[in-house]
């Protein structure tokens, strides 16, 4: 290597392997070079503003097109590597499973509603009589083989079961990944908060006040622009401690829950293990908030 290249090191200098052969002829950049480029970039060893003319002059690429195609191969390799680096497998799977679960719930309720409409249209008498449970309605449909919705009803029942097992699996996974949050407000609610935030990192860096109204974005913005009452709770409303609290305490309870969740999220990210003392204390605080003073 001559003095000039030692002074200024551009990205294309890294695309030459030990034998001195040039990688531009292959379509994929070897993993080793990508690791090398990443490391050198972190160290700040790669000079800015590369020039393709220099790369040609040094004989690394043949022409402008060669320069661009080598750069594109490298950048695609880097993107793929960074995508892999940035994703925690457990966390990603939990986030996507929660989204799938919520989508399944939505589909189930939509389909059940339509089936109910169908049934009422055929049996208007039942509308006046007793209120029929949708579940029992689907049960009857599965038994009447001549009904056109017989199969659909069976599928719905199966989807319902699948959904329940999926919810259990998600709960177990959430208890593993977010032990403290799950202990406070239940694994499913924690998992939903995580899915909404996108990552544990983001969740832990959120202030408690954001956590409190997380998922109530539309009413929050109406509050900010039009001056209506602020929302008391977002996703955390699904936690039964808030849902079942007396109406006039709900705001206070959700504020306390959010504060404790904020702490729990940080413990989950940085320690990753369940902290019994914290959970006990936080639980006491939440209980106190729900009581008459």
């Amino acid at each position: 290597m001559d003095v000039k290249t030692l002074e200024k090191k551009y990205w294309y200098h890294l695309c030459i392997d030990e034998q001195g052969s040039i990688m531009s002829s292959v379509s994929r950049i070897p993993e080793k070079i990508i690791t090398d480029v990443q490391r050198k970039r972190e160290e700040g060893c790669i000079s800015f503003h590369p020039s393709w003319r220099d790369a040609v002059a040094e004989g690394i690429v043949a022409d402008r097109a060669g320069y661009l195609s080598l750069l594109r191969d490298l950048s695609i390799g880097l993107v793929v590597r960074e995508l892999a680096d940035n994703s925690d497998k457990d966390e990603a799977s939990l986030i996507h499973l929660v989204r799938i679960l919520d989508e399944a719930d939505r589909s189930l309720s939509k389909l059940s509603e339509k089936i109910e409409d169908y049934y009422i249209a055929l049996n208007p008498a039942e509308l006046a009589g007793y209120q029929r449970n949708i579940r029992s309605l689907i049960d009857t449909l599965t038994k009447t083989t001549e009904d056109p919705l017989n199969r659909m009803a069976k599928d719905l029942q199966r989807l319902q079961e699948t959904r329940t097992t999926l919810a259990h699996d998600i709960g177990r996974l959430a208890e593993k990944i977010l032990p403290n949050m799950s202990a406070l407000c239940g694994p499913l609610v924690s998992a939903r908060l995580l899915a909404k935030a996108g990552s544990k990192q983001h969740l832990a860096s959120m202030p408690a006040s954001s956590l409190q109204v997380f998922g109530a974005g539309s009413s929050l913005f109406v509050h900010l622009t039009a001056g209506t009452n602020p929302p008391k709770h977002g996703i955390i409303y699904q936690y039964k401690g808030i849902r079942h609290a007396k109406r006039r305490f709900r705001g206070r309870v959700s504020r306390v829950v959010a504060c404790q969740l904020g702490i729990a999220a940080k413990i989950d990210l940085y320690r990753g293990v369940s902290d019994e003392i914290f959970i006990k204390k936080a639980g006491e605080r939440i209980c106190r908030a729900g009581k008459e003073t």
Partner: peptide, 12 residues
Amino acid sequence: ANQRSNIIPFFQ
């Protein structure tokens, strides 16, 4: 970027 030779993507 795989289809077009003049797009260079970065995940940054």
